[in-house]
Design a protein around this nucleic acid. Sequence first.
DNA 1: CGTCACTTTGAAAGCTTTCAATAGGAGTGG
DNA 2: CCACTCCTATTGAAAGCTTTCAAAGTGACG
Lengths: 247, 247
Amino acid sequence: MNAEVAISSLRQVAPFPGLLREPAPTLRDVFVGKVAETHAAGEALIFEGDVAGQVFEVVTGVLRAFRILPDGRRAIMGFLYAGDVIGVSHYDRYLVTAEAITEVKVRRMPRSRFFAEVNDSQTLRPLLFALLCEGMTAAQDQMLLLCRKNAEERVVSFLLSVHEKSAVGAMIELPMGRLDMADYLGLTIETVSRVMTSLARRELISTVGRHAVNLRKLSALRRISGEDEGADGDFERAATRRAVWPQ
Amino acid sequence: MNAEVAISSLRQVAPFPGLLREPAPTLRDVFVGKVAETHAAGEALIFEGDVAGQVFEVVTGVLRAFRILPDGRRAIMGFLYAGDVIGVSHYDRYLVTAEAITEVKVRRMPRSRFFAEVNDSQTLRPLLFALLCEGMTAAQDQMLLLCRKNAEERVVSFLLSVHEKSAVGAMIELPMGRLDMADYLGLTIETVSRVMTSLARRELISTVGRHAVNLRKLSALRRISGEDEGADGDFERAATRRAVWPQ
DNA sequence: CGTCACTTTGAAAGCTTTCAATAGGAGTGG
DNA sequence: CCACTCCTATTGAAAGCTTTCAAAGTGACG
């Protein structure tokens, strides 16, 4: 498990993950020596609006980070996996609530110490910078998805992104429930369910229980996701749909 | 104009802008001495996918930063105002295309030098960090908007966010066209237009030409935006709409 | 003052949501 | 170990909001 974690963490930072074999420094190095604490599924580690005193590193398990509108509507900003860090911001309050989806193990440290250590280290600093850039890129991908993709494209894009994170053949795990997926993709639970059913009926995927999916036709799924260049697809439509962009 | 710019730039960085009176260091200090270049409306400064060799600082004017799906659908990730910086990332390619909406003046420098200078400066480094955090927060606000708000809430939220950036009474300027607003808010141009018309008919706003709006009833608009706590509103609905969140 | 591009408005269609009911899984207790 | 119960997921039908298609209106600019 630890090796897997290290690899996934590496990929976030190294431009060419395949080229790296020996252990490279990662942000998680700041947390060495801290004891890992365990939280049960459903527990919240931090609450939106609370004073942001601590920074956490996910060692094991998956969390959801979300914000809630006053009337109760929830939007999940992202899912946190091993190697991810929560609570990094220059605001004095947490911007999201982070809740365990599965049982999780995390290590924590005071935010002030975290920043001091990272700031003093010539090797750690670029890693924090890279982490923030990764986060920004993920956020932009998500904005593109929410802004311009339909329900099927959203679900397929999500499945593929999970696949990229944890590529073990064509099998992916979905620790989160359908409601989490819906609140992440800007859909309702029913729509997510319908899309999944439809994909399965077309044999593009097959569900294995509620929390695992077999991506049976990856290339077809990539085409559906909306981000495929359509190498074999119709070039015409792509060129004529919208006149590139207005001046 | 310069004074205005400095103020808006300060707000982005200082936790308590009201407390600062004398010139504080800002990221733009890196660009002093660089000549400002002018670009006409419609011109692109950087292209998504191009090698990211340069970092730009907006001196004057407004730009749009966007990504495009293979079939031509466009999503605007954000609008860039004076004091904003483009091209900062640890990827070697630009992630977005940045196009001038109005005539703009920018200052540029090689990315490598930008990073070297920021990295060497004890005062500049936290400013870059703050900039990234600001960007992350804006992205999360946008994800919440795109994920869970309806058309009217989106448009009103946008108008209010512009108002916060450039509060000059109740008047705001919208240098971008309706299509830009639509591609930023995940709507169509027609829907944006309809919402604007509806708001005007209800006298919550009044449009002044195409590029200026008078926010006539700010508190009502805040209530509509979806983010209002509803101090005077019905507390019941907020509490019962969704059972907080599922375990 | 005419042209062109952008915006507004209308009507119909479509996709997603809402409401409702059934089905399925996981955990608990007998 | 199996039955029961509860929570989550799936499915169906109708409603609703936004989009699409189409046309008229408005403003900027040469």
